[in-house]
Design a protein around this nucleic acid. Structure first.
Lengths: 162, 162
DNA sequence: ATTCTTGCAAAGCCTTTGCAACTGC
DNA sequence: GCAGTTGCAAAGGCTTTGCAAGAAT
């Protein structure tokens, strides 16, 4: 993990069960959902639906594409996962047990660097107060090239000059 | 316009022609492209591909869907338009002749409020320096409900209580 | 004349959905 | 047993693309 975890009182699994039980029409906790929650929270990665499907299949789980999509939506709604829109792609990351943060996304290698910034909160508050805007969420993504890819580029440029 | 325009030396049209001419393989300036540039810069709206197609057809222009998509990509590349990813939808807005800004997006009425904040630039610089990240762009979108929709909600809540 | 652009329709990509079989509770 | 869930395959949005006809330089 790139950032320190946040102390939480329940496991993601029990938090999800609580969510399901508290719905207007109580929802069921199935084998597929359990496998998904456990698998997703057994590692700390950004992932998209397709990657999750592939990796879970490789890991020997039996979950259909439709169920992956349906359950991801529930996990987001339950506050376990956060949706991350990157260009035209949708990624997911842990929300429960993980602090608020933003992303630097390297366009060369695809790596996502997480960062926290306390001033951002101040800006958000100021701007929203000024516009009497009631905020419920935000997206802050910085695109560019990471340190490693930058080095690679500079090296390549030097080589090109020879 | 919600923000003051930036002084620019050329018209969007000539800036675009310059871009086309400067390509490795010079590209052509067509009637459809001219109509699109003129139409888009004759008003200051956020729009998506579909809206543009509909509105241009209504305005009596003849441009195919494929050409709209192909030309929008060129306009973004030329620095005339900025792409705005909102959830799963892609919007476009003026870039050339318009200052850097961020958005508050009302999830109730869909309205986009533009704002500027100088501290944001500082944060970006600090964070990128710290991570030796070379930034090329960013997305900052705040979701919530605007002042007007907030009032409507409060009113509705009051009425519900009667 | 050459080469790029257009328009059409087909294909792609990702995501959602209808429906019968299935399974938590 | 009832109501919600699954898996499949089909359908949906939105965007891209192959290709023949057309237009810019």
């Amino acid at each position: 993990m790139s950032l320190p975890a946040v102390q939480v009182s329940q496991s993601p699994e029990s938090k999800f069960r609580e969510y399901l039980a508290s719905r207007p029409k109580p929802q069921r906790y199935t084998e597929q959902q359990r496998d998904m929650v456990r698998y997703i929270f057994s590692q700390h990665h950004h992932f998209d639906a397709d990657q999750l499907i592939d990796r879970m299949k490789q890991a020997g789980f039996r979950v259909s594409r439709a169920t992956i999509y349906r359950t991801l939506a529930k996990l987001v709604d339950a506050g376990l996962l956060r949706r991350l829109e990157l260009g035209s792609k949708t990624f997911y990351e842990h929300d429960y047990g993980y602090p608020q943060h933003e992303h630097l996304v390297c366009e060369a290698c695809g790596n996502m660097i997480e960062f926290q910034n306390s001033t951002l909160e101040t800006i958000l508050n100021d701007v929203c107060r000024e516009h009497q805007f009631h905020r419920t969420g935000h997206t802050f993504i910085v695109r560019g090239t990471c340190a490693e890819c930058n080095r690679a580029r500079v090296t390549k440029r030097r080589l090109d000059m020879i």
